Amino acid sequence: MNKKKLIVVENAIKEIARRDGVTVEYVKMQMKIAMMNGLRSADPRVKSFWDNISREGKIPTPDELIIHTSELLKKRKSHE
């Protein structure tokens, strides 16, 4: 995974934790819970979203989700 992107993601997670007065671990745990709910969806569109996330393991990490989502947003913005 791109180290520069990982640094940006880690900084974003740290900022969320700081803003909300919680730990980085707490933010990541909440993200994992939300992700597990999404991964269990029976909706074909939702399944397609999760299947298209580049990942090193069987389940994407919060970092991989953020990178994937930010890349999707960049693509959409460039097509506007």
Rank of each mutant, 00 (worst) to 15 (best):
N2F: 02
I67P: 06
K77R: 12
A42R: 06
K28E: 15
P44S: 11
R19I: 14
V8N: 14
L72A: 10
I16H: 08
M29I: 11
M31T: 07
V22K: 09
G38R: 09
W50D: 01
H79S: 03
S41D: 06
I33M: 12
I67N: 13
K58P: 01
D63N: 14
K3Y: 01
S78D: 10
S48D: 00
E64L: 03
L65F: 09
L73C: 05
L39H: 09
V46R: 03
I7V: 06
R19H: 13
I33N: 08
L39M: 13
P62V: 13
V27K: 13
P60H: 06
Y26H: 14
E15H: 11
K58D: 11
A12R: 09
R76N: 04
V9T: 02
V22Y: 07
I66L: 15
K47Y: 00
S41V: 04
H68W: 03
S54Q: 14
M31V: 07
P62E: 08
D20H: 07
I16E: 15
S70V: 11
E56G: 15
Y26C: 09
Q30C: 14
R40C: 05
P44W: 05
E64R: 08
I66P: 10
S78R: 07
D20K: 13
Y26L: 08
M1K: 07
K77E: 03
L73G: 05
R19V: 08
D43M: 04
P44G: 12
N52Q: 15
R45M: 11
G21N: 10
V22P: 11
N52E: 12
D63S: 15
H79W: 01
E80L: 01
E56M: 00
R76H: 00
